[in-house]
Design a protein around this nucleic acid. Structure first.
Lengths: 248, 248
DNA sequence: TAGGGGAACTTGTACAAACAAGCGAGCACC
DNA sequence: GGTGCTCGCTTGTTTGTACAAGTTCCCCTA
């Protein structure tokens, strides 16, 4: 069952992408959209709230909504999973486990994953046959077994864990900064030591709020960038000073 | 006039921050909250939607909402303005104009700011008396005059432009990646050439959707990081491959 | 012609009601 | 003892109504 407001949002999004409502133009008023779709105004408001959350339209009281852009936010899965993102964008991709072992958690990991041993996995991911991402992931003990059963060349870990263990990643927290490549980073990614890497540290949890993994992902400079839209009303991205979080 | 749902959201947020509802615990049901505040269920839903957008709570149909974390997103102003962010977090900060001149726009700038000349400003910002950020901003012609009137040591450009020209930044698009420091970057920021910098390119627009500035901000590695919370339902951050946007 | 006033329009907030859909616990049955 | 099912609770979706608050544009006036 797809919600009605989702259908209306999809139609509006399509009209924006296809140029019916160009960037900078005004959207039809809520009453007009409601009449056109035979829906209540509240339903239409939910639909445009979706578009506002995606950063496609902006609004202020009293004035018609305006179109801000056409780039669409991908789904959570596409941000979370390298494979799903690459596939959705039509890139050729791959992955290979470089090292894998159980070890005691660092204090920072223990605070999030619990005090049991973690499964530490180092993966190298490729995009268009070029190595672009080095993934250091610590999995919580309760999921470690399922991760160990995955084949070393597994393309999509997220997908494989869903199929084998029914695991669904639902919430994520991400911390983005820049770091120099270590000797090992440099060798695996094919760059010079000390050259810039874009680092994304993340903690992922299930629906129930149970932490699944802590990860330290390092992208080769120039290979990927993160983008975000915000507005004076909605602002999900936060700036932090230094290494205040995720421990040292 | 503060909206009722904002008050309820503030109270709930306070209860989460103060530990009344610890991380991982369940929030009271909507009906209970509605009864407690003497409000309709829809109003309570708006309140918890605010917290969900901030990444503090998660929800799924049928089960009670759970608390995901306690870190709160700052306001749009704090993401947009280095000064407001630094002040809100109690840091000592400063800024100095290094160079300023009018020039024709690059093609990428012209597409966003219009074809008129842009005002190119290079600013060095300090945090705790350390240089941490190099800001290269191209202002649109219509606002260039007001920017030129600002003192070179102006701490908060955003604030100054609001007071002098009534300008309000309302929407922003940000693209985050890592780049090596150029010779000039390195000298001004006090790092070695080629060392990692965290780059944030952004385009900012007013309420009406009129573009104000394009900026290329480079942070010294280790000085700041960006963080974001997302969920399977709401996902504002997007990953891009290579330099697909903002021109070359 | 420039400015003020106001009317019409549009979005924001709030309430009430109803049904759908999913979750979890407890109960009955095998 | 374990399995499956049902029932109550909770969140999700939708409609309808009313008023508040801000914007836009026209018209009238000085």
């Amino acid at each position: 069952m797809v919600a009605r407001y989702e259908l209306i949002a999809d139609e509006l999004r399509g009209e924006i992408l296809s140029g019916v409502h160009p960037v900078g133009s005004q959207l039809p008023s809520e009453s007009e959209l409601a009449a056109r779709h035979g829906a209540a105004r509240g339903t239409v408001r939910q639909a445009v709230a979706v578009l506002a959350a995606e950063g496609l339209v902006g609004s202020r009281q009293g004035a018609r909504r305006i179109v801000l852009g056409t780039a669409r936010s991908q789904s959570f899965a596409e941000l979370h999973s390298f494979a799903e993102w690459a596939r959705a964008n039509g890139y050729r991709y791959g992955g290979q486990v470089i090292a894998q072992r159980r070890r005691p958690p660092t204090p920072a990991e223990a605070a999030r994953l619990g005090s049991g041993e973690v499964l530490d996995v180092l993966r190298l991911r490729t995009l268009e046959d070029e190595p672009v991402l080095l993934e250091r992931t610590a999995y919580a003990e309760w999921i470690a077994g399922a991760v160990e059963k995955l084949p070393p060349g597994c393309g999509s870990v997220t997908e494989a864990l869903y199929e084998s263990a029914g695991l669904v990643f639902a919430y994520g927290e991400h911390l983005i900064d820049a770091v120099p490549a270590s000797t090992r980073d440099a060798r695996l990614l094919g760059v010079r030591r000390g050259s810039p890497l874009l680092r994304q540290r993340r903690v992922t949890t299930t629906h129930e709020g149970r932490a699944v993994e802590c990860s330290d992902d390092r992208y080769r400079a120039g290979s990927v960038a993160f983008s975000i839209r915000n507005s004076i009303g909605a602002n999900p991205l936060v700036r932090h000073a230094g290494d205040l979080r995720f421990g040292a």
